[in-house]
Amino acid sequence: MTSPNASAVAIRTILLDGTPHGIRIVDRLDWTGTCLVFGRADYPRAKARPELSRTGFYLLVGPDPSKPDRIRMYIGQGEQVRARLDEHLRKKEFWTAAYVITAKDDSLDRAHAAHLEARLVARARETELAVLDNGNAPALTSLGEWGDIAMAGFLDEALTMLGLLGVSYFDQFAADPAQESAPARFETYYLKSGELVDCKGREDADGFLVFAGSFARRSCRKMIDSYGALREQLIEDEILVEHDAGRLRLKRSHRFKSPSAAASVMVAGSRNGLTAWKDEDGSTLKVNQEKRAAAAGADVLVPAGPATSVCGASGLAAPASEVQEQ
């Protein structure tokens, strides 16, 4: 039996409709908060939920109308969230899903909600991982030393819930890859090609993050159409900007869906990201992935059982080494 990881978190989800895409409640036993998730089409039924009569903050998420490949997001708060959502249903057409964070004991007040909203808007503006629909940046008002600490902890827990649900647009590591809070299990990789391409990045659970300041080749070579379209979109969005006659520079860190997408866009030609990205010792991402998998496999215990439970082709009991490999 494996020992639980000290940093492991137990989260529970209730599927109110019995389906993974219906109305859901996500929380954890040792947190006072709760997250209600529903699609726009389910809002008429979600309105009856008690969570929407409480004070809290919420996110409205959907494809950006002018850039369908990007996500648009609105961050709001209210003393009674339901009233605000009623208004947004009439006035905001882009959103397809809502994430409402409240407290199970209704302990959040308007000052708490406004404080959390301001923190989230500031973080979203910093990371630029989604197109923010908020017109103004609300001022961050201090709640006093104790209140600020308590709300920082509450927000950290909320972001864990949202990340589990795929809402990872507040990842500070994406905005500042040098910060020490980046998970240690994700090492840094490098991509170099001639004198023009010089990139640094990191594999993570959501794809491959290329750090701000990385240089890409300006002239485009033959590449997969989807990668070419992505590159053009990054240039249009001024994420890849002109640096000099031969190079483009990544203005801010960008998370690609795969190492190959990251390598191809930066090199301006098709590349296998698993072999193109290398660590400081020259080992490829592919080699390191295989090493980690092999090391993890060595720690897996194969339950002992009767030798005759697995048979070779002859019908005789197979050797123990074959039992483990099958």
Rank of each mutant, 00 (worst) to 15 (best):
Y99Q: 12
R84E: 07
F57M: 00
R82G: 03
V121Q: 01
T96E: 15
D133I: 02
L89S: 13
F57K: 01
L116G: 01
P63L: 08
R72F: 09
Y58V: 01
R84K: 09
E117Y: 04
K91I: 06
E117I: 03
D69T: 07
D106V: 12
Y99I: 11
V100H: 15
L108V: 05
P65T: 06
S53P: 08
A97W: 11
R90Q: 12
L85N: 08
E87Y: 11
L59I: 07
H88K: 10
Y74S: 04
A98Y: 00
F94D: 05
L129R: 09
R70H: 11
H88A: 07
Q77D: 02
E117N: 05
Y74C: 08
L60G: 11
Q77F: 01
L60C: 12
L52D: 04
R72I: 06
D86V: 01
V131F: 13
L108E: 01
Y58G: 01
G78M: 06
L108C: 03
R123D: 11
A111M: 08
A113M: 02
H88L: 07
T55E: 00
L116K: 03
A111D: 10
R110Q: 14
A98S: 03
L89I: 13
K67R: 15
L120H: 09
L129P: 04
R110D: 12
A124L: 07
L89V: 15
R119E: 03
D69N: 01
I101Y: 07
L59P: 00
E79M: 12
L132M: 08
F94W: 05
A130H: 10
A130N: 09
V81G: 00
L85V: 09
T55M: 00
D106C: 14
L89F: 14
L89Q: 15
Y99W: 10
V81Y: 01
A122Y: 09
L59Q: 00
A103S: 15
I101C: 09
E51D: 14
A83Q: 11
R72P: 07
A111Q: 12
Q77G: 03
R90W: 01
L108M: 07
Q80I: 13
D106H: 13
S107H: 00
A103K: 05
L129G: 12
Q80C: 11
V61Y: 02
D69Y: 04
K67F: 11
F94E: 04
A98N: 02
A97F: 08
R82C: 06
P63F: 03
A118E: 06
K67H: 13
F94M: 01
Y58A: 04
P68V: 05
G56I: 00
K91N: 13
A111V: 04
D64S: 12
G78A: 10
P68I: 04
L116E: 05
V100I: 15
P68E: 02
G56N: 00
D64C: 14
T102G: 05
A103V: 09
D106E: 15
R72K: 15
D109K: 00
A124C: 05
Y74N: 05
